[in-house]
């Protein structure tokens, strides 16, 4: 399970970095989204992977999952979601004002 999750995070990050370095705003926004997915999974995994364990105290629990990363991920998701919405609006505004969707506003590239 650890290897699979590490692979998923690695692939998401690689895709995110590649797309962020593209010249058009749409792939850049997608790349940032991929990066935030990767980091959310990464944060979640930092509490160690455990299946079927409760994060809050219960009487019959054999062990516990770390609740803090779950709270952190929740915060990170909310912030990431708001930021994505903002950057999409900004990209649309740039498309409208600069006349094309290149990040430098140059149509010839």
């Amino acid at each position: 399970m650890e290897a699979l999750l590490a692979l998923v995070i690695g692939v998401l990050t690689a895709c995110g970095v590649y797309l962020t370095l593209r010249g058009r705003t749409f792939p850049v926004v997608l790349g940032l989204t991929f990066l935030s997915y990767a980091v959310n999974l990464f944060l979640f995994a930092m509490g160690r992977l455990a299946i079927g364990r409760p994060p809050i105290i219960g009487e019959a629990a054999a062990g516990y999952a770390d609740p803090l990363p779950q709270a952190l991920v929740l915060t990170a998701i909310v912030i990431g979601f708001a930021m994505t919405a903002f950057v999409i609006m900004l990209a649309l505004k740039a498309r409208a004002e600069l006349g094309n969707d290149h990040v430098d506003g140059r149509a010839d590239r």
């Binding site: 940032l32 950057v87 740039a94 004002e97 600069l98 990040v103 506003g105």
Partner: peptide, 10 residues
Amino acid sequence: RTRAGLHYVV
């Protein structure tokens, strides 16, 4: 300003 802002945000 929009162009500079886009770079800054990303």
